[in-house]
């Protein structure tokens, strides 16, 4: 059996409209709702709820809604989501890059640095010297 205090506490949660109370609590509360103290308590809460509704923000205008929709589409265009196709493309690109890196590494391992001779002045000088010496000495 619901007492006065529980009625007031429940009304503070679910408000002045008993039809919005959970069914079980409503069934217990209904016999009390006609008591003068309950009528006064519910009326006070009903006033508060009416003021709450009156203090509500306005519904957005159609223009504002339209701007928000356009803004959302802009954001989506700027930040494309991950799709399977995009992931596959990234994976293929990544795998291609890895394969190229691996092949390059193997070439380095087998043949040493691949820097062009022209970029290595010391090697170039020695090579030139080697070629010239026999003639000078002959």
């Amino acid at each position: 059996m619901m007492g006065k205090e529980e009625f007031r506490e429940t009304a503070m949660i679910y408000g002045a409209d008993l039809t919005r109370w959970p069914a079980g609590l409503r069934a217990e509360a209904t016999p009390l709702a006609a008591e003068p103290w309950a009528v006064a308590w519910l009326a006070e809460l009903a006033d508060l709820e009416a003021d709450l509704a009156a203090a509500d923000v306005d519904a957005p205008t159609p223009d504002r809604v339209g701007r928000a929709i356009a803004g959302t589409l802009d954001r989506i265009a700027a930040r494309p989501r991950l799709s399977l196709g995009r992931l596959v493309a990234w994976a293929v690109a990544g795998a291609g890059g890895l394969a190229a890196s691996a092949a390059f590494g193997m070439i380095l391992a087998l043949h040493g640095p691949l820097a062009p001779p022209a970029l290595d002045p010391i090697a170039f000088v020695i090579e030139a010297g080697d070629l010239a010496l026999p003639g000078l000495g002959g």
Partner: peptide, 14 residues
Amino acid sequence: LRLLMDRHMARAIR
């Protein structure tokens, strides 16, 4: 998405 926003954007904003 556009259709869904036409239906629910006002609700989301409010």
